[in-house]
């Protein structure tokens, strides 16, 4: 008789693996990536390609240097490179995604032990690093998308949609009409452009539709917990509704909050990162609501027009604490009455 394996139960495992999960997440980002190429042309392909290739390359290099097993075929570095690129303004120079990817995979991920051990989302941390290091490039590198202009508003070419909401009076200029500008912005055609993507913004964030397609794929395959996008987007909606803001026409205004900026990209693809979000269902609610509150606070009263990436980073840091206070309920902890 041949040698029998003797190991502990269970003796069978569910299909699926970390590698499969990661590559499915990559697949879910393909529509948004394809959209970025459509809207911003070969530049988008070049920047994304550089981001992905350098993330994989630096990941492998770091693993080799640290004497770890090289596991770049698990797809996680591809996700990091892809997400970073999709979070970049389209006009940044070619080396920005390369430097960003290096920071993301070497410093944020491998320095802390590799996949599963980083405490903040590598792509978002790299974006924050790039914003503070090259603020000019990272906050002004906007381009008009194919078939549209930067703001989505006719005649306004110098600001992204959320920047228009935030700084209407400056954009309208001295003697201009900020209220008219807001009225123009908060109209259904503009919301339609935000939804379909012919507005300015980061490479991957312009088309809510394409992000939603990937997001629905992740929900249907149960790769992400619905609580995070639902809690996050729901909180943004509710707060935008009840808090004072540059409201002109309510529904289009809410449309700006949901479809403008990085909320879709953040809520479906970045706040849902397993490694850096809470592990229990209750914890995920807390996390999602926290992300939503911070995002709206930054958008309405913060120093930036957009707050998705900082909100998620802050909540990433709060994750161990959330985990601590949202443990699952132990079976039999509450002694029930018999009979």
């Amino acid at each position: 008789m041949t040698q029998l394996t003797v190991t502990a139960s269970p003796h069978l495992r569910a299909p699926g693996s970390v590698r499969l999960i990661m590559w499915l997440v990559v697949a879910s980002l393909v529509p948004a990536f394809a959209g970025s190429v459509w809207f911003f042309g070969w530049r988008a392909l070049m920047l994304t390609g550089l981001g992905v290739v350098s993330a994989v390359g630096f990941d492998a290099l770091a693993q080799k240097l640290f004497g770890r097993k090289v596991t770049v075929d698990d797809g996680s570095a591809v996700i990091t490179g892809l997400l970073l690129a999709l979070n970049l303004p389209p006009a940044v120079p070619w080396w920005i995604p390369v430097v960003g990817s290096a920071f993301a995979v070497v410093i944020v991920k491998q320095f802390f032990g590799g996949l599963g051990h980083n405490f903040v989302n590598p792509a978002l941390a790299a974006r924050a690093f790039l914003v503070v290091s090259w603020p000019g490039l990272m906050t002004a590198g906007w381009l008009a998308p194919r078939g549209g202009n930067l703001s989505g508003i006719d005649g306004i070419t110098g600001a992204t949609p959320l920047a228009v909401l935030k700084n209407a009076s400056e954009i309208a200029g001295p003697g201009g009409d900020p209220a008219g500008l807001l009225a123009q912005a908060q109209s259904w055609p503009v919301v339609g452009r935000l939804f379909f993507g012919s507005v300015g913004g980061c490479l991957g964030e312009t088309s809510a539709l394409l992000l939603l397609a990937g997001g629905v794929f992740l929900l249907v395959t149960r790769l992400i917990d619905w609580r995070i996008p639902a809690g996050y987007i729901g909180t943004v909606l509710v707060l935008a509704l009840v808090l004072p803001g540059p409201k002109h026409d309510l529904l289009p205004y809410l449309g700006h909050h949901v479809f403008g900026g990085g909320l879709m990209l953040g809520a479906f693809f970045m706040a849902t990162d397993y490694v850096t979000s809470p592990i229990t269902s209750r914890g995920r609610w807390v996390f999602a609501v926290g992300c939503g509150i911070l995002t709206v606070l930054i958008r309405l009263w913060g120093g930036y027009p957009e707050g998705v990436s900082y909100s998620i980073l802050l909540m990433n840091v709060a994750t161990p604490l959330i985990d601590r206070f949202t443990r699952p309920r132990l079976f039999g902890r509450v002694k029930k009455a018999t009979g």
């Binding site: 495992r13 970390v18 698990d74 599963g116 051990h117 397993y274 490694v275 229990t280």
Partner: peptide, 11 residues
């Protein structure tokens, strides 16, 4: 026997 990987905290 499947090769194991570090936990990714999927929950």
């Amino acid at each position: 026997e499947l090769e194991d990987h570090d936990c990714i905290r999927c929950g």
